[in-house]
């Protein structure tokens, strides 16, 4: 099967004087439409790896190849465009814009690319908002909804441009276990419906086991990589 995202020999070293190497020669390929979990102890380098995958951070060495494009050859604006079109982010914190309503936040990645919103996209936004069960509060300011609702709004926002890859860094870190279950069920449903590739960081083994593949990182290296049988 095609690999949508490839990491080749990724090193990450922080600091100029005191150097801390956080990632050591990481090679990873992700199949299209797969649902991947990344686990590991706190400080093992999960977030660092994810930020590099999402082109938010640059590796010290190595290549990040997204959909066939080596990101090393891109300038900042081209990188921004690639991010906008192919990657949806869901962070531990929702990072919604407080000045805008839920609906406006969901539409934001689309507007960054196209400027204005056509009817079709508006329908899609409403459909996504409906899917994450926020229809009732869609016109609320993003600060005027609960934490779980904010996280779900961020999920809808990550999906609006129909990205090939969705990167989620502990998307349920701030939520209670019941809400956590709903959110993961939702992510799985979206994976089934839109065939987007999911890479989800979690420290919860039980949650991780719901993925097709579990990658464990220990001290900046891949220590286990388990694929479940293909669905």
């Amino acid at each position: 099967m095609d690999d949508i995202l490839k990491l080749k020999g990724i090193d990450k070293i922080y600091g100029d004087k005191v150097k801390t190497q956080v990632l050591f020669n990481v090679d990873l390929n992700f199949e299209k439409s797969s649902f991947n979990s990344i686990i590991g102890a706190s400080g093992s380098g999960k977030s660092t790896l994810m930020n590099i995958m999402g082109t938010l951070d640059k590796p010290t060495n190595g290549d990040v190849i997204i959909g066939g494009t080596n990101t090393i050859s891109l300038n900042r604006d081209e990188m921004a465009e690639l991010r906008n079109e192919t990657i949806g982010f869901i962070f531990q914190f929702h990072y919604l814009l407080p000045e805008f309503s839920v609906l406006e936040n969901v539409l934001m990645p689309y507007r960054i690319k196209h400027g204005r919103v056509d009817k079709e996209t508006m329908e899609r936004a409403k459909y996504l908002i409906d899917m994450v069960e926020l229809t009732k509060v869609k016109n609320n300011l993003s600060t005027d909804i609960s934490g779980g609702q904010q996280q779900r709004a961020a999920i809808a926002r990550a999906l609006i441009n129909n990205p090939d890859i969705i990167l989620a860094d502990e998307p349920t870190g701030n939520l209670d276990s019941e809400t956590t279950d709903t959110v993961y069920k939702l992510l799985r449903e979206i994976n089934d419906e839109f065939k987007s590739t999911f890479i989800v960081i979690t420290h919860d083994k039980k949650v991780a086991e719901k993925g097709d593949r579990i990658i464990e990182i220990t001290d900046g290296k891949i220590s286990t990589d388990i694929r479940k049988y293909v669905r």
């Binding site: 999402g54 921004a80 465009e81 690639l82 991010r83 906008n84 079109e85 982010f89 990645p109 960054i112």
Partner: peptide, 8 residues
Amino acid sequence: ILKAMGIK
């Protein structure tokens, strides 16, 4: 946030 989402 806007930049992470790809604003130029």
